[in-house]
Structure formats: C-alpha cells, structure tokens
Simulated scan of single mutants.
Amino acid sequence: MYPTDSNKLPSVAIVVFNHFSPFHISVPSIVFGPSTLNEAFFDLKLVAGEPGPILSDIGMEIHTEHQLDALAHSDIIVIPYWRTIDERPNEALLAALQRAHARGAFVVGLCLGSYVLAYADLLVGRRASTHWELEQDFSQRFPCVLLDTNALYVEDNRVITSAGTAAGIDCCLYIFRKFYSSTIANRVARRMVVPPYRDGGQAQFIDQPIPVTSSDSRINALMENIRRNLSQKHSLDVLAESVMMTRRTFTRKFSRATGMSFGEWLTTERLNVAQDLLESTDLSIEQVVEKTGFSSVLMFREKFKARYEVTPNQWRKAFYRQSNNQT
C-alpha cells in the first residue's frame, strides 16, 4: 500500500482531449470515482489536455473545470487514450507530464495513452505496454522503450502503461491496490463485475494468423491434407516423399512458402484447432489432445502455455461459449 497523507485523499487527474473515447474515459472515472462504493477514496478531477471544446468520437461533450496547471498538484495523472498515433501531443502537456513525474507523481498511459508518455520521453529506457496491434509501430517510433508485448500493464519507476481497452480496468485496479488494500480494490472489482486479477497476458487475445495457402501448389495440397489429418503423426521424410522432394528441399521450400518451419506450422495449426475445441465443445483435455495430434497431455499443456500464457483450462474458463449448451 502506497503511503499517503492520512488527512488528504490521493488526487487523480484524468486528462481529456478532443475526439475522446467514452469507454476509455469511463474506466478510470469508475475505478477512482466515488460512485462505485458510495465513498470517496480519491480526489478525482477531469483536466482539459488542450484548448477548445472536448468532443467525443460519437458527439458527446465534456466540460472540465480544470486546466493543465492542475497537474502540478496531482498524485496520479491518467492519460486514458490518444486520438491518433501519428500526432505529437501539444508541448505544454508533455512538459507538464515531465514536471509531474519529476516531483514524484504517478503518470499513467492507458492503451494509446502510452504513446503520449513516449512522446513526453517518460518511457526512455523503461518497460512499457500498449495494444498488441501497435507493437511494430510503437517499437519503430520509440526504439529506446522496452516494450513488453504480452503484459496487460507495466510499472517502471512510477510510469505505468497498459494494453488495449479493457486492460485499462486491470491497470486502474492495480493502482487502487497501491494506494489502498487489496480488500478494498477487490470490492471495487466485484461491484464492477470484473475479476480483481486476470490470468495471463495479451498473448491470449492476439490474432496470430498462419498461412492458409502459399504460391507452391504442392505445398498447398499438402497443408490441406494435414489439416484434415491433424491427429496423425507426420514424418518429414514421408511428407517430402509425398511431394516428390528430398527432405532438405522440402524443408527449404516449406519455409519459403509459409515463412515458418514445418514443425512451427504444424504446432500452430494444432493449437488453433485446440483453441476452437476448448471454446466450442465439452471435450476433455485428453480428447482435445487426441484430436489435435499432440504426443501427450503434458506436451499439449506446455505448448499451449508457452504460446498463450494461460493453461488450456484457463482458456476454456475465459472463452467457452456457454450458448452452445442452450436450446
């Protein structure tokens, strides 16, 4: 629990901009606001991050009573989003964030808010997180940032960043626990009907496409045949012979055609089918293993956990479609 002046509530400033996203604004407002538990644990204020009207992307408008000078007295400053990754925020805001962090404030970037903190040079040499879809862009723009592409949120020396959208809830609950007990933070989570902690990281949500076809017709036919027979064992020598190639030539051409080794492609195919079976059927783990061709339950669990950072049972718990059992 973070030490605070017992006579003063920790102050939270949520910085808002034109073209804001209502969801991203509502997350810190609900977690840190007084309405969730009908009691104030933070002194919450909305701060205009720039001059002019503050309109949302769907036409809502926010009227704020505070300007950037309010950041000089805030314990926690939250940038809940940013409207476009190509736009550098105004220099007055960036300077205010730098001064706030230098005097000891926590500076938080939720989702694309991490871009604002990066533009302010607050992430140089620090670990950070952002939405997985923007990993390549973020790393190219800010090569001095140690981007953790799997983390739901990251703290490094009072600079806190989170992954996309709903990960902002996880991040704000984490901050709540820093200033108060886990017991109170868990009450907030229950009131919001969200888990106090989420297992795993972004890996379980990342779209990881695999090649469906290639420019090689023989490789395409082979891949389709393997998909229909995933439960079987597949030998490189036998597969190479089936397409009238040497093992070495087959290995080279498969890698060139798909961008993956045959072993990587096969494991990924099997994991994708396993995902679908866990989400849409009541098959036991043993049955899933049998249908997808993994050599053992242990091997399946190891491969699944390595790829998605959660166990198969945790995946099923999170994504199983209950509607499949409804009539």
Rank of each mutant, 00 (worst) to 15 (best):
Q202P: 07
Q202K: 05
Q202F: 02
A203F: 08
A203H: 10
A203Y: 08
F205Y: 15
F205T: 03
F205P: 01
D207V: 10
D207T: 08
Q208M: 08
P209I: 00
P209C: 00
I210K: 02
I210D: 01
V212T: 10
V212E: 11
T213F: 09
T213P: 00
S214T: 14
S214C: 06
S215E: 15
D216F: 07
D216E: 10
S217D: 03
S217P: 12
R218L: 15
N220H: 08
A221C: 10
A221N: 14
A221P: 01
A221Q: 14
L222C: 06
L222D: 01
M223L: 09
M223Y: 03
N225G: 14
N225M: 12
I226E: 02
I226R: 00
R228S: 12
N229F: 06
N229I: 05
N229H: 15
L230F: 06
S231C: 11
S231W: 12
Q232K: 15
H234K: 04
D237N: 15
D237P: 05
D237Q: 15
A240I: 09
S242Y: 07
S242T: 11
V243E: 07
V243N: 09
M244E: 15
M244P: 00
M245W: 03
M245P: 03
M245E: 13
M245G: 06
T246C: 03
T246Q: 09
R247C: 04
R247W: 05
R248H: 10
R248E: 13
R248F: 09
R248S: 12
R248G: 05
T249D: 13
T249L: 11
T249S: 14
F250W: 07
R252Q: 10
K253D: 09
S255H: 12
S255Y: 10
T258C: 01
T258Y: 00
M260Q: 10
M260T: 05
M260A: 04
M260R: 05
S261A: 04
S261N: 01
S261D: 05
S261F: 03
